[in-house]
Design a protein around this nucleic acid. Sequence first.
DNA 1: CTGAAAGCGCTAACAA
DNA 2: TTGTTAGCGCTTTCAG
Lengths: 348, 348
Amino acid sequence: MTRIKKKDSISISIEDVARRAGVSITTVSRVINKIPSVKEKNKARVLEVIKELNFEPSIFAQRLATGKSNIVALVIPRYEGVFYSFYALELIRGIGTLCDVFKLDLLLHLTDVRSNLSLRGVGGIIFADLIGNRHQLEEALAGNIPCVVINYYVEDLNVSCIAVDNIGGAENAVNYLFSLGHRRIAHIAGDVVTQAAAHRLEGYKRGLKKNNIEVDQKYIFKTDYSRGQARVAVENLFRMPEAPTAVFVASDSMALEVMAVAREMGKNIPVDLSIVGFDDNPSGLYGPVSLTTVRQPLIKMAEEGVKELERLMNMKKGAQDSGSLKTAQFKKVFLPTELVIRESCRAL
Amino acid sequence: MTRIKKKDSISISIEDVARRAGVSITTVSRVINKIPSVKEKNKARVLEVIKELNFEPSIFAQRLATGKSNIVALVIPRYEGVFYSFYALELIRGIGTLCDVFKLDLLLHLTDVRSNLSLRGVGGIIFADLIGNRHQLEEALAGNIPCVVINYYVEDLNVSCIAVDNIGGAENAVNYLFSLGHRRIAHIAGDVVTQAAAHRLEGYKRGLKKNNIEVDQKYIFKTDYSRGQARVAVENLFRMPEAPTAVFVASDSMALEVMAVAREMGKNIPVDLSIVGFDDNPSGLYGPVSLTTVRQPLIKMAEEGVKELERLMNMKKGAQDSGSLKTAQFKKVFLPTELVIRESCRAL
DNA sequence: CTGAAAGCGCTAACAA
DNA sequence: TTGTTAGCGCTTTCAG
């Protein structure tokens, strides 16, 4: 006979509020959802009671009733070279902050290639980079879940993506070095499983070609973004018979390592080697020689990403039912970078 | 008359499965929840249909029905000196990975002192550090939500906490330096708004006292954990009339900056200055002189934290209703650190 | 402007 | 071992 669950629950429900305020639960619901057609007096009373009771509507009930969720999943590859970086942290921070602003719940998904992320109940997804987990994106899209990809430009899928113009940024860096008189320009590339690293490499090549310099594979060092591999790269670089006079490095963290190694080897920066990094990691400001670098608008990317996702989620919400997302306008942008000139390069 | 919402919904429900499998929804529910009392044959059939229909139960319905949530919120102060660190990333990674394992949904909450985090629907909370947001913890506790604090030892509240033995770690570092013959040992402290930094400072002092060295305020440099302030600190340190022969630095990232600055100033590490860091940040391995440091078990902390939270959440679940958490056994531990001896210290 | 009542999809007595 | 049924707390017609 004790099947009456009614009031053994700890949390107060909309019903409690209704009773106390002397209105129906419908009215309370209206107040919660800011539906204008409520008499001012009732509204005030309800709000008062809500405050008194410290009532918060159950998100589960709301979502069950509406079928809508404002949970946003952030899917980040648990991939070392990428995850342990200024980039990842800045992105998480940016997205976290923005979700706060938009009152979205941020679900963090660190993912493997193999992981089968369960997206039950997720209202939208932000994929930060795509490293072997494209199938996850496709699945989500197939499930009609609003998706935004950031830091990766997706050509061939109907999905919004906010990427950084890595190619252009790299090209600028090379142009700059060229304009200073450098001709033997090396590149320490990041892990080319990431699109960013691949694009920076591409931009480097384009930059050279546009200035009629031949691309020389000897001058290209591929790494996994780690400082360790950057170290090896510079060591080899300096040992070359015709050593480069400048190097464009795919990340600031590696660029800093390059500087450190150079100094250890008794070299002078920028006299013996000009360096341009990528990221605009604040660490580049310290040290005896501040780092010239390509600024990447990470926060901006996070912002644009969340805003775009918001848009898609609302669009879906507004639509009659399914399908609407298929015909949505997708946004595909390359955010511009900015060359930040500091002290690590010199004119020949 | 189109009020029959039944089949305009995109997602399939337990009912569809039931119909198709020729059983009741209860049976389906039993299968989902792995309740043993289902005939093998039916179970197989249901599982089959679930697969066919690609059915996933609605978390919202489940949670509404059970009143239980397996959403775990990770609350991290959006506090610069702390957030932008190896520590934060490693922790997020550890917790993210473990939540995956435990099938918990990880909600990320970057918080301010002022932010009023809404914990609606959250099944448990992990507070990473407590910086001015103690009230949030207290509110959560008052709301009977299982909480675990990591990287912060809470003395005076009934809550589990998994902290690192920063005091002991710092003391060991000092002992080690003492054993090498150092007597003038400086300390570059982190931001003492964090307990970790405060404890490391405390440990430093204790270490000195135990070795009968007087604590000299001149030798203590307070920073905000930034490399910039570390830089200033070393510069001042070397300018002192009786310059220290060794320094214990509150983070590896600052310790690396110390090394860099020292080299810039023409000093030799470890000849002119012995250095011990704190963290065991992999970056300490690079460079000409690898960094001796105090290893902090971050992943272990993340693991213990999630496990403990799981325990509390299950405990709550198991209990009749409310109240059970009040009488729970709370776990309060200091995880031990480990001195990792590498090359940055020398015997006098 | 308001309220009654029918769901949303699932779980958990209880009865069979 | 299975099915019936009453909720979970909220939204949303629809009829006042």
